[in-house]
Simulated scan of single mutants.
Amino acid sequence: MKRLLDIAPAGTITTKVPVGGGELEVMKISAKRVTGLLMRYPELGDLMGGKKVPPMRLVEIAVDASAALIAAGCGYSGEEAEAAEAKAAELDIEDQLRLVEAIAKLTFPPIGPLFDQLKARVAIFLEELEKEEAPADETQPTV
């Protein structure tokens, strides 16, 4: 029988993700780090729980929350986390999405269906946002 100290910590479960022409190793994040992220961004917990989050609020937190998850999944914490989050926020959106998906799947193995659901919600959100920002098809009067 294993004892608590014999169990490998969350950070030992890793995978490699293609990023910017290279590869970046990401890891499963611990429950403590997940809790910290949910405390910083409670809307993520709401979204995962099936609650509707105002689209503009998602826009406000998306980059920062993704960057925080990526930094945690790359093993950064404490003082290093701030610099890692700033670097993660500057990555291409495709790289960010690949990293977030890989970290989420490692951290929450049964997340596959939930991640697909989240992608569908993001698509709907983007469509709604596009409708809100689309200019009206009004012709300007001629003088």
Rank of each mutant, 00 (worst) to 15 (best):
V59W: 04
Y41A: 01
A31H: 13
A10S: 07
T35I: 13
G73K: 09
C74H: 00
M27E: 09
A67I: 09
G78S: 07
G75H: 02
P42Y: 11
D64N: 11
C74A: 11
Y41W: 10
A89D: 01
T35H: 12
A31W: 12
P54G: 05
S77P: 00
L24K: 11
V19A: 05
K32M: 03
L38F: 14
A10K: 01
G20W: 04
E85L: 01
T35K: 14
S66P: 01
K28V: 08
V59K: 08
P9K: 07
I29S: 10
I29N: 09
Y41V: 08
E82A: 12
G50A: 09
G45S: 02
V59E: 06
E43P: 07
V19C: 09
L44Q: 11
I29G: 02
E43F: 12
L44P: 01
K51T: 02
K16R: 15
A62Q: 14
I13V: 13
M27V: 03
S66D: 06
E82S: 04
A88H: 00
E43A: 15
G75P: 03
K52A: 15
A68L: 07
M27K: 06
D46M: 14
V34D: 04
E25N: 02
A89I: 06
K51F: 07
E25P: 00
V53N: 03
D64E: 10
I61Q: 06
L69K: 03
A62V: 08
V19L: 08
K87L: 04
Y76N: 07
V53Q: 04
L44V: 15
D46E: 13
A89G: 06
L24Q: 13
V26T: 03
G21V: 11
G78Y: 08
A89H: 01
A65S: 09
M39Y: 10
V34I: 15
E25C: 00
E43Y: 09
E85W: 02
G50E: 13
C74R: 04
A67Q: 09
T15K: 12
A65R: 05
G21H: 06
L37K: 06
E80F: 13
A10I: 01
G21C: 11
C74Q: 03
A31G: 15
E79S: 12
E43W: 04
E43L: 14
G11C: 08
L38E: 07
T35D: 15
L37N: 02
L37W: 01
L44N: 12
E23K: 12
K28Q: 15
M27Y: 00
